[in-house]
Amino acid sequence: MRLVVDLNRCQGFAQCVFLAPDVFSLHGDEALLFSPRFDEAQRDRVEKAAAACPVQAILVDYSDEPTLRVEPDVG
């Protein structure tokens, strides 16, 4: 599972950080950082974050889903 944030659209409302703090973070007041890959445990939170974005800048891609059982990687 992957996600993309359109940083040209992002205005730093930070709603995604509140809802999925393990995937998104704020550096300083405006700069958004995020993990482009996330695992099943974060799926629900990432969906909430994407839906909540006031400028709809978060795109979530599940096209790699069939492989999700072999992940997560770190442990």
């Binding site: 930070a14 950080v17 509140f18 703090p21 973070s25 704020l26 550096h27 300083g28 007041d29």
Partner: peptide, 18 residues
């Protein structure tokens, strides 16, 4: 708003509400 946000949300307190 920045002051009040400090203990409430990111960047300083991203996990408070969670």
């Amino acid at each position: 708003r920045d002051t009040i946000n400090r203990p409430f949300g990111p960047p300083h307190s991203p996990r408070f509400l969670d």
